[in-house]
Design a protein around this nucleic acid. Structure first.
Lengths: 213, 213, 213, 213
DNA sequence: GATGAATGAGACTTCATTCAT
DNA sequence: GATGAATGAAGTCTCATTCAT
């Protein structure tokens, strides 16, 4: 499941795919704009994941989604906006699932386990996306702002999950995110720490916060 | 009917101007290659820090160092190689200072404080560099490998500082680095955690590891 | 202390001017890709002819055809590919005309005369192209291979023209080509041999082959 | 002895050879200027042969000869001049040997054989050089002029060898050169004509001219 | 005479973005 | 709404040539 990355910073991409009508993705149907947009976002997510933000070009995203280059710009003002859309979908999906687990009637320990596993799986599936996000947060004001807003929403959600101490919640979010990234990147493994150990650490962090007290 | 040809094979180039019109940096002195390289590395560090890896171009680095574009490529095979050089210098400087503190005859608490402050200061001074590094580690095999090797050297150093548990040392390095990044990025501040608190956390992490036991 | 960053990821590009200031060729019409390609090939042929392969740059070819630099690379992977296209068109045109003459109901002598004149005229019109071709055949595997394949097709054509002895046909092709080149280059003239004499030689070479027996 | 060529027009050269003191060739001794020049010419011949005129850079020639880049320009005004020097040496050597054979007291047939073999061997040893020459003759006035002068000298030599019909001598030179090139290039082989047959043709061409009659 | 660090014009190529159809 | 041909600024890298030492 580890995604293929381009071998260097130098462009070495999948061959430009010069198919007949240069159709790359599934044949696009003329249809509801939301569908088109959804297909574009999905294609963008995949391309960003595989090649990174800078290694992905908007024409390829469009083609991968089954559209022509122009269509991309009918739905996004520019490439950054597409990245933002991808990020928002990514994070929304994670929090939807987290909320679902939170609302389950199971014991705190199991909840913590499921949450930790969910987050780690989510990060592991999109390491390239995560890494592009971190870079863009540092470099693009638009992405940075979106990131902040997303964080704020997370805080609200955590409050709804019953965590009243904002400062500690913040710390939790940050720690969980960072550790999940490290697991996904394989950094911990390389340092001799088995994923299981790191996961255990994650679980206990979450559990501690879940139990009011 | 014989077609006109260009006057010769010689490309008529303007004689290398005494002083480039678009020179940006300080006048370059002709000198030892190490000096030139050092100036280029310094300029590259600054440019990468300010504009990120992808936002920096090699010509600008050269000009900022006071040289012409070609000079850059006399010292680095490509932009990645220059980034690597910057990274290596960055990390070497940090660890030199850390080693110095470690060898000081002061109590553990003070040592931990100084170390934490040093690392945080170092990260705070170069947040853009850090962020580019993280992206390149994810995308460029060359950078990833260099990063790994650097980590291995750090482990060796930590062992020399008297930390015998490799696994825990690894965890320490990772945690410290991540927290320092978070402080430098302002992520913690944004989440309502004052830098001071995070710094305190860092110090206690280090201190715990310093005291054998 | 947070360092200044560039305003965004978006590279602020000037909007594509309605009509490029440095447009050289005729106004390009948006149209069928084949037309664009044809114009590019024609422009490339002219440029290669005038300045030689190494003296021609792809941007100039594009501009001469009435397009922007990028358009060139929509149609050719690189400069070599463009050269190949030019060569193929060049040779196809010659052989089309030769086949036409061959199918004429005229006596052998007249046929030989027309063929010789045609070939010489064709070489005389493109001496620079011929000379670049010879260099590239020696240096570029791609061009060399194309050249060989073209030769093979010529052999087939000659067989269709009624020449059954392959080895002698081969010799004929080579001799004709070489002599035509020499006439076009003016080498023979410089050595005191009038073009007419060389042409006569060419004609008799062809005539001898045309008459079975 | 067939020389390796670069795989395409795209630069793919032997690795830049970053040896310690970037010495590539034999250690150069400070000595008579003629020796230095001779070494440079020899190195240039080899480089041009292997990489072609445009694929060879003057710095590499200098290094290959054991000198620094600047030294190259102490001996040649530019790259073309170096190529000219190589060409002149190449042709002088051939004609020296031809003159030697001519003055031998052997029968005409043996003379013709030796001459043909000599010329073919000479061309076979330097196909890359020949091919660069042909291109430069077409493109560079300086090389073209040198080529013409060399031809004129050849005519004089042929007259001294006892060939009084200038026009026929000219034709002989041209034919011999062209056929030798074709053999060296492997063009005839590719067309199914064994080198031996072509060589036989060459011999009889020469023999016919040698015998006054 | 030799050195070699430095030069800088310019070649090739990419890709985000536009707009006429 | 979709298309896709076209755009052109800009980035990476090369190499013939110079000149201070």
């Amino acid at each position: 499941m580890t995604s293929a990355r381009r071998p260097g910073v130098k462009r070495v991409r999948a061959a430009p795919a010069r198919r007949a009508a240069n159709a790359i993705g599934p044949r696009a149907r003329r249809g509801a704009p939301e569908d088109t947009r959804a297909r574009l976002v999905a294609a963008a997510a995949e391309q960003f994941e595989v090649s990174g933000y800078h290694g992905t070009d908007s024409n390829r995203i469009a083609r991968a989604a089954g559209y022509a280059p122009g269509t991309f710009y009918k739905h996004f003002a520019d490439k950054t906006e597409a990245f933002l859309a991808v990020y928002e979908q990514w994070i929304a999906r994670q929090w939807d699932k987290l909320a679902l687990i939170a609302s389950d009637h199971i014991d705190q320990r199991t909840k913590a386990e499921r949450m930790a596993n969910l987050v780690v799986a989510h990060h592991r599936a999109w390491p390239g996306l995560r890494s592009s996000l971190r870079e863009l947060v540092a470099i693009s004001p638009a992405v940075r702002q979106a990131h902040r807003e997303s964080r704020r929403r997370q805080m609200t959600l955590m409050a709804q999950l019953g965590l009243d101490d904002a400062s500690r919640s913040a710390l939790l979010v940050l720690q969980v995110e960072r550790i999940a990234d490290a697991i996904a990147d394989g950094e911990l493994r390389e340092l001799g720490i088995p994923d299981k150990e790191a996961l255990g650490w994650l679980i206990s962090l979450i559990e501690k916060r879940l139990q009011p007290g």
